[in-house]
Amino acid sequence: MENAHEELLFIQRARREGDPWSGDMAFPGGRLQPEDESARAAAERETLEETGMDLGRHGRYITRLSDLITRHHSRLRPMVVTPYVFEWHGPKTILPNHEVERAVWVPLDYLAAGENQSQLPWRTPLGTLNMPCCRYQDACIWGLSYSMLQELLTAGINAKSKIPQ
């Protein structure tokens, strides 16, 4: 994969009481709404709402990554997360909404480097687990975002290559 000068956008979610992902690093995203034509349309809408980045106007769709099954921390029903990858051709200025504390552009080659991989101790009722993560400056990318990142890196997806869906 040719990663030189390519970057991925991560957001740090705003800290809110009762939000299980409060303060976590993530990709822009959110829930499917009745007015969304598809999961991809929801991803585009959520990106615009959270960052001011209009993927329909300045983005080029690259691919869809694998669905991830998780559950909302307050519910037993599973939740499906469907990640999409876009190449950005617009300004790098981010206009975060109330859900976003900050946005960080991270070089793809940094994210791919083995020496930047780490572990995050995560306490559970059964004990502490060491979760894989990537640390960048004062940010820690882990959990679902880390899983998406690993698929992206493993597949060798970049702006010049598109894997089949």
Rank of each mutant, 00 (worst) to 15 (best):
V104W: 09
N130R: 13
A112D: 01
D138F: 11
G143V: 04
S145W: 05
L120H: 09
W122R: 12
V106S: 00
V106T: 11
D138N: 15
N116H: 14
P107T: 06
P121K: 09
L111T: 10
Q117A: 12
C134R: 00
V106W: 11
G143L: 00
P107V: 10
P121M: 03
G143I: 02
W122D: 01
C133N: 07
G114Q: 08
P107C: 05
Y136K: 07
S118Q: 07
R123T: 12
N130G: 05
I141T: 02
C133M: 06
W105T: 00
N130E: 12
D109A: 07
L120N: 06
V106Q: 09
L120R: 13
P121E: 03
N116L: 04
P132S: 00
S145L: 08
S118F: 01
P107R: 03
L129V: 14
P121R: 01
S118H: 09
A139C: 14
Q137K: 14
A113P: 04
G114H: 09
Q119K: 12
Q117E: 14
Q137S: 13
D109I: 01
T124G: 13
A139V: 14
Q137A: 15
P125V: 03
L129I: 14
A112C: 03
D138C: 06
W105G: 04
C134F: 06
Y136F: 15
A113L: 00
G127P: 13
W105C: 04
D138W: 11
A139Q: 14
Y110K: 06
L111S: 10
P121A: 10
L111M: 12
I141M: 07
V106D: 12
I141K: 06
Q119A: 13
T128P: 04
L126I: 11
R135C: 10
T124Q: 12
V104I: 13
Q119Y: 13
M131A: 13
S118P: 07
L126N: 11
N130W: 05
D109C: 08
G127N: 13
G114P: 08
I141N: 02
C140F: 08
C133G: 01
E115R: 05
E115A: 04
Q119P: 00
L126A: 15
S118A: 14
C133T: 00
M131P: 04
L129G: 03
A139N: 15
C140L: 07
A113V: 05
V106Y: 00
A139P: 03
Q119D: 09
